[in-house]
Each structure stands twice: as structure tokens, then as C-alpha cells.
């Protein structure tokens, strides 16, 4: 794993990608820092990170787009997969290398509260905890980007899909607010999900009877719960899907001064899940 980490990190820093990523992050956050903290005089650096969050959503795919797709295209994955390394070692080595590059601008951000402190009063706990949350969300984005990169051979497609996925996560909070909350609408969505699960079962097993039975049982279960107590379905979708919002982690902290530990754990858990999916995706390719 360490060999992969060293090679990847060096490769990012030797090619244009690493320095370009660092420059984009530092420049844009720097502009926000200048405008919000220096010119407008806000004493919190956190507001700058929250306002510039979308920059991360666009810049992280720059780093992750090549991680697996490029190896697959140039066939360099052959040297990795035929070496006595485990796929987990490869995935973690790459992940930590990208995280290391990502941490360079984050380390620069750590200086900003000190600059504010030199000019007046500041809120160190708030700022540094926000930077911590920001770093964890960054890691989640990296794991998502790596997973998407492992699905395709084209870095460009990986980048476009990753940016879309990250913008979706960025806007998640607002989008969830527009979801229907009535029991009937929830029932319709859940039935569609049940049918989609049936389709997934069909795609993986190619057995029409098993997948039809699975879909039917899932639909019946949803219907049974609905008929038993339809009030259970009211507001179900927004309540469940709200949990997938990541920006809310920063917002709760900044606006309510609450350190959302459960939210942070959720981010770590999702990061692990996407790393696991990346391993599965790499393994699966050998079987197809």
C-alpha cells in the first residue's frame, strides 16, 4: 500500500494535476477569504468554507478522474493486478495519495483563522472544527470520485459524472425540500424502488422468475405496510433522504454551534462504503 501511495502522490505532484488542484482550491477560497473576512469583516473563516463549498465539488473530480480509468485505458493496471498486492491495498494506497494532495490546500486553510486572529477576535474552535468537517467531506467526495473512475475507461466521463454527483450532493438539501411528503406519493416512489430492485436482481441473476418474485414480494410488503398504517408513509421520503445531505454537517455546526458527531460518522461510513464499492468494481472487471 505504501508503494502505491508514494507512486501516486509523486505522480500527482509531478504532473500538472496536483499543483493545478492546489492552485484552484487556494485561489478560490482565497478570494472568498479576502472578500468575506478581509473586506466585509466577518470574524469566522467557516463562512468562507461554506460559501466556497461548490469549488471543492468541482475540483475534487480533477484529482480522482484518472485514478482508475486511466490505468485501465493504458493497461498499467496489469502490473498492479498481477502483483502480489491485494485490491484493497491498491484502492487504499490511491485513496490516501489523493487525500494527501487534498490536505495541502486544507493545511493552507488552517492558516486563515490565525490571520483573522492577528487582525482582531476570532472563533478558533468553530473554525478548526469546520475545517475538520470540510476535510472529512472532501474524503467522502474523493471516495465517490474514485468509485466513478473505476467504472469507466475514460477520465473525461469520470470527471463529468463525478462533478454531477458532487453537485447533486451539494444541492441535496434544497432538492429534498421539494420532494412530495404525502403518503400516496411516498407509496408510488417506494413501489417504483421495489420494481427497480427487481430489475437489479434480474440484471445480476438473469433469472426472470426469481427477479419477478422478488419484485412482487417487495411491492406487496410496501402495500401491506401502507394499508396497515398509511400515516407511516407521511414525510418518509424527505426524512430519510435528508440523512444523505453532507453540507448540512457544516451548516448545523456553523449556524447552530452543534457538532454533529452522528453526521460526521455517517460521512466516514459512506466513505468506507464507496471504497468498498471501488474494490468490488475493480474485482468485478476481472470476472466480466
Amino acid at each position: 500500500m505504501i508503494a502505491i501511495f508514494k507512486r501516486e502522490f509523486r505522480s500527482y505532484m509531478q504532473t500538472m494535476i496536483g499543483p493545478a488542484f492546489i492552485a484552484v482550491m487556494v485561489c478560490f477560497v482565497g478570494i472568498f477569504f479576502y472578500l468575506l473576512n478581509m473586506v466585509a469583516g466577518y470574524p469566522y473563516f467557516s463562512i468562507c468554507l461554506i460559501s466556497s463549498f461548490v469549488i471543492m465539488a468541482i475540483a475534487v473530480p480533477l484529482l480522482t478522474m484518472r485514478s482508475f480509468s486511466d490505468e485501465r485505458r493504458s493497461k498499467t493496471d496489469q502490473i498492479l493486478l498481477t502483483s502480489p498486492l491485494k485490491v484493497w491495498d491498491i484502492v487504499l494506497g490511491k485513496f490516501f495519495a489523493i487525500v494527501a494532495v487534498f490536505m495541502i490546500p486544507v493545511a493552507v486553510f488552517c492558516i486563515c483563522p490565525l490571520i483573522i486572529a492577528a487582525l482582531g477576535s476570532t472563533y478558533f474552535v468553530l473554525d478548526y472544527c469546520t475545517i475538520l468537517c470540510y476535510a472529512f467531506i472532501g474524503m467522502l467526495f474523493i471516495s465517490i470520485g474514485m468509485f466513478i473512475s473505476s467504472l469507466t475507461e475514460s477520465p473525461v466521463i469520470a470527471a463529468v459524472v463525478s462533478i454531477a454527483a458532487m453537485l447533486l450532493l451539494y444541492l441535496w438539501n434544497n432538492l429534498v425540500g421539494y420532494l412530495p411528503s404525502g403518503a400516496g406519493a411516498t407509496l408510488a416512489v417506494l413501489l417504483a424502488v421495489a420494481l427497480a430492485l427487481g430489475a437489479v436482481v434480474f440484471l445480476s441473476t438473469k433469472n426472470i422468475y426469481v427477479s419477478a418474485a422478488f419484485g412482487a414480494v417487495a411491492c406487496l410488503a410496501v402495500l401491506a405496510v401502507y394499508l396497515y398504517d398509511s400515516s407511516l408513509f407521511t414525510d418518509l421520503l424527505p426524512t430519510v433522504l435528508e440523512n444523505f445531505s453532507v453540507i448540512v454537517l457544516l451548516n448545523t455546526f456553523f449556524y447552530s454551534y452543534l457538532f454533529d458527531l452522528a453526521g460526521l460518522l455517517r460521512v466516514v461510513l459512506f466513505t468506507g462504503l464507496f471504497l468498498f464499492l471501488t474494490v468490488q468494481s475493480v474485482e468485478k472487471r476481472r470476472w466480466s
Binding site: 508503494a3 507512486r7 505522480s11 509531478q14 504532473t15 493504458s74 498499467t76 502490473i79 502480489p84 498486492l85
Partner: peptide, 18 residues
């Protein structure tokens, strides 16, 4: 399967490590 941004020596050291 060569990483073109490396030199042969760096590449072989990397391969030896993995």
C-alpha cells in the same frame, strides 16, 4: 504496463516494492 511519467529506475524500484 509502464507509467510514462517515471524514469525506468523509479519504475523498477516501484515494481520491486509492489
Amino acid at each position: 504496463p509502464l507509467y510514462t511519467e517515471m524514469t525506468p529506475y523509479e519504475y523498477l524500484v516501484f515494481v520491486a516494492e509492489i
